[in-house]
Amino acid sequence: MKRYQGLCEIGLTINGRARRVTLRPADTLLRTLRDTLGLVGTKMGCENGDCGACTVLLDGLPVKSCITLTLDAEGREVTTIEGLRDSVIQQAFVEAYGFQCGFCTPGVILNAYALLNHDNNPSAETMRSWMESNLCRCTGYEPIENAIKLAASKLR
């Protein structure tokens, strides 16, 4: 097992591009993305793994970046909201009014994007088991549900 001490420099692949960062072994992926790399689309909502605002994808699967060590992302594909461009799911959130204040939205969209990559015809139960990890205070969730269903119908 690799040991890290003090400051270390590692390579990361973020949104398909190679990045080098200097960090402390205890740094979380959320802090590295926001504070070191300036990728502030990823949001800090609780820093306790409870709200999902910081959700990013690691090798295509959602993780909460506030409780993920940056070191654990080494050698893996990190996708942040900045890595999605005019995707079907993003357009669906626009058309279905799937957000209001927008603060939870990057995490919600990344989670939904991964969900639809995994299953483009998800059952209500599958949608719930994926999406219940992301809190939204504005929408009452109905518009999020509508957006995911709209995107799924376009992807099928």
């Binding site: 689309g41 909201i81 993003q90 357009q91 959130f93 626009v94 990057p106």
Partner: peptide, 23 residues
């Protein structure tokens, strides 16, 4: 009319700058 939200493109791309995003 249900006009689409003006802030939609930035919000779905994580491009809105909230106060804590400022450095």
């Amino acid at each position: 009319r249900s006009v689409l939200r003006k802030d939609a493109p930035d919000k779905v791309h994580g491009r809105v700058r909230y106060t804590d995003d400022l450095r």
